[in-house]
């Protein structure tokens, strides 16, 4: 697999300005076309401009909300919940994932529980969380944790299962202790998988967070902003919120964690096929 990675990795030796500008221009053109069609359709009256306001009106509303400081509060609160929930998910998800991958008791206890809980929708957790933690930021943070933890566990387990048994034989035959095997073999071995898990998990967690902010109890947050706007039927804010969710989701999953993933691929020379 390491060979594929080197072949598929873009040649970065000579930073070609034309190529770079094209790689920035392409997304702008393709996304811009979508917005342009939308704008024209709304202005020309092909679609109901109240229900589908033109992008320019949405941008103007967003700008106003930004100036009033409200928007930053919503974004900040959403990001805070996402980061806290993700941090919890990475720590507990890795531990549970290793327990499942390495130990018989871990498999016996956690696998059934995970396959029972995974299909349970976010909303179903709210009565349980209400009993356990009450109604505040912790509710949404736990929802994020749940959404992301499954993905992290899943990738960590498949990372361990994908490791060759020979590695252990070799290490053990050379007299490595259990601890050494853990720190020198398992942890570096699952690192690339873990980061892929974080990337995918952050995507799910972001979506789950928005849904939780919309459906469960909250105040502030982008999901709440959309929900609140639909009470007033202010469509520009609804679409503005949806756009921001898309943009932030993209940035978190592809730019921030995506860079991290690319860096690990470079360092360990492994690409995870998921």
């Amino acid at each position: 697999m390491s060979a594929d990675a080197t072949i598929l990795a873009p040649v970065r030796s000579r930073p070609d300005i034309r190529r770079l500008s094209l790689s920035i221009a392409r997304p702008l053109i393709s996304i811009g076309t979508v917005f342009l069609v939308w704008e024209v359709a709304a202005r020309a009256g092909w679609i109901n401009a109240f229900l589908f306001p033109p992008p320019s009106a949405i941008a103007a509303t967003l700008w106003q909300e930004l100036l009033s400081g409200e928007l930053l509060q919503h974004i900040g609160r959403s990001l805070y919940r996402l980061l806290t929930g993700m941090a919890l998910a990475v720590v507990f998800g890795t531990l549970i994932g290793i327990a499942i991958g390495m130990t018989a008791w871990g498999r016996a206890i956690f696998k059934p529980l995970i396959s029972a809980f995974m299909p349970v929708p976010t909303l179903a957790w709210t009565p349980v969380l209400l009993l356990l933690v009450g109604i505040n930021d912790r509710t949404t943070i736990i929802v994020v944790f749940i959404a992301a933890a499954f993905e992290v566990i899943y990738t960590v387990v498949s990372g361990i299962e994908g490791m060759s048994v020979r590695l252990f034989w070799v290490a053990r035959s050379m007299g490595a202790s259990r601890q050494q095997i853990f720190w020198k073999i398992i942890l570096p071995g699952i690192m690339p998988y873990l980061i892929t898990g974080i990337r995918l998990g952050s995507g799910y967690a972001w979506r789950a967070l928005i849904a939780a902010e919309m459906l469960a109890a909250s105040s502030y947050g982008l999901g709440f902003m959309i929900f609140d706007a639909s009470e007033y039927m202010t469509m520009e804010v609804i679409y503005g919120g949806i756009l921001l969710i898309a943009i932030f989701g993209y940035v978190i999953e592809n730019v921030i964690v995506g860079r991290l993933e690319a860096a690990t691929v470079e360092k360990w020379g492994v690409q995870v096929a998921r």
Partner: peptide, 20 residues
């Protein structure tokens, strides 16, 4: 290269946001 920007913008949207 042409289509993926649009897809990656749609990907982070929770499907629920489409319902309305």
């Amino acid at each position: 290269r042409w289509v993926s920007p649009v897809i990656s913008l749609l990907l982070p949207l929770p499907a629920v946001a489409w319902t309305p």
